[in-house]
Structures are given as structure tokens and as C-alpha cells.
Simulated assay, not measured.
Amino acid sequence: RLDEIELNSKYTIENLWILEAVGCQHIYLSSPPHYRIRLCVPNKNVNIVEGVQRMLRTANIEKVFIFLPVIHRQHRAIYKMLNESSISSITFRNEDMNVTDEMLLDCVKNHNVVEIPRRFGISKITEVALHSIYKDLLSGGIPLNRLTVDLSSPTVGRFFERLQITFTRSNIMSKRPIEVFKDERRGFNIFEGRMRILMRMQMPRVRNLTLEIFPSQEDCDKEKNSEGWERVAVEIV
């Protein structure tokens, strides 16, 4: 089926899942309503690296979901290929995947959207990498539009320290010209220019953090006027 598609034309894949199950490796493609393809072959007979390489060479892929740990050499090779591709959105979905600062900093240089949800990799990503990405987003130095990641509360706290923003029980103090709004889900939306940091509490000592840059100041101001939002006082020091 793949050979037939490749021979006919360059094709588009809306979503590409790359995953590993007991005894099998999978490449699962979906581009509804045209076709759905799932490949599953025993590990001993498959070179999944070549399979992914073939997809990247012959298809326009919009989103990738990775369910592979990066402890094996061929898994790291797959990650490297994806990172060097023009895919817009990449999501890590395996809780065994240890996403490091180095991996994250490489990833945001090549993709518009990066997501590391459900506390995946929280022990590896540091405030140093987050601060670097924040500065690059503000300056427009990377193609990234949005990063979403779950992190430990201490890591998030140290990230805000680098930004010179302090949260106390009674107020917020900042050395930066920021605006803060609390949304209907009790998330804190912190704006600086066209930049937003969205912070939500996932569970005790775990925070969901999103760094996002808006296309224009008008789009950013429109977001600030969202229904149900409440402005939070900030003490500029």
C-alpha cells in the first residue's frame, strides 16, 4: 500500500504515530478521510529507522506523536531525523522518554509546537533551558510558537526567579513590565509584550507551563480580554 502511494505522488499525513509495544514496533498513519495505515512487524524483521526515514522523504507530515523511549540507539536516530525535519508539531507521549535540556533546545529550533504532557520528563528539563527558550521567543530567534510541558513546582519557581518574577501568597512582584490575569480555570496568564506564560497546577508540586508567542500585539490584547478573566495586581519593583 505504501509503495503504491509513493509511486503515484507525494502524499500528506495529518498525524503520524511512532510507537513500540511488546514484541512489535508500529508506524501508524492517519489522514482522514482518505486512508488509515498501521504497520506492525516483529522487531527482528523491521528497521523502524528506515521506515520513518521513508515517511519523511515521501510525505508531508503535519503532526508527530512519539511513543518511543530514547534509550536505544535506533530510537535516538528517529528522534534526530524528526528534529531535523520540517514537521510543524511534535508531541512526546511516552513516560519513559527522558527529554533532556539538550533535546528540548534542539527541538524548539525546528518545530512550531512542542508538547511534553502528563509529567513526562519533568526530572530532566531545567529552568535554564526554559529561560533560554523564553528569551528566544521574545526575540523571535526560533520558529517555535508554543511550548507546553509539565514540570515540578521547584523548577517552575526557579524559572520565575530567572525572570525576576516573585509569587507570594498576597501579591506578585516583578522587575519586568508584565501583566497578569487569572482565567476561569484559575490559571495564571503572565504577559510580556506578545509573550504569554500560562501556569496551571496539575497536582501537588506539579505545574503545567505553556510559553506562547502571539502573531501580533492585537492578537495578544484580544486574549487578555477573554471572558471570565480577572486582572491580578502586580507590584513593579
Rank of each mutant, 00 (worst) to 15 (best):
P177W: 07
S123V: 03
T126G: 09
N110P: 01
C220W: 02
I236W: 15
G193Y: 14
Y35N: 15
F67D: 06
T100G: 09
P32H: 06
E95F: 15
A233W: 10
M55D: 01
M201I: 06
E227P: 14
G157M: 12
I125Y: 04
N43H: 09
S85C: 02
I37R: 03
L137S: 11
S88P: 09
R57N: 14
V149G: 06
I122Q: 07
H34A: 03
S86R: 11
E50D: 14
I5T: 04
E50W: 09
V46F: 05
E218A: 13
M55H: 00
K10D: 05
S31A: 13
L56H: 08
C107F: 10
R146A: 06
L144T: 00
P215Y: 04
I61W: 02
M173S: 14
I133V: 05
R93I: 02
R207F: 12
R54F: 11
I133L: 04
T100R: 05
E20N: 03
S31C: 11
N83F: 01
F214T: 01
S152M: 14
R93P: 03
S152C: 15
R205I: 08
R1Q: 12
I190V: 11
K80D: 14
N60T: 14
P154K: 08
S174I: 00
K224R: 06
V64G: 06
R76P: 15
V149R: 09
P32M: 09
R76T: 11
H72S: 14
I133A: 03
I61M: 08
V41E: 09
R162M: 14
E127A: 14
R196H: 04
D96R: 08
H34M: 01
S89P: 05
L137F: 07
N45R: 15
F188E: 07
N110W: 03
M195T: 08
L56K: 10
K224Y: 02
L2G: 13
M201W: 12
T168V: 10
I27S: 05
R162W: 07
N83A: 05
L138P: 04
M199P: 03
F120L: 07
F67K: 06
F92A: 12
R54L: 10
N145C: 03
I125A: 10
I27C: 07
P143K: 03
V237K: 13
E223V: 06
R158W: 15
T168C: 04
F181H: 01
F191C: 01
L105E: 10
H131P: 08
G121S: 08
P69S: 15
K109H: 05
S31D: 04
K175H: 08
D219V: 02
I133P: 00
P177K: 11
H131F: 12
L56N: 07
P42N: 02
I133R: 02
D106L: 12
V128S: 11
E62H: 09
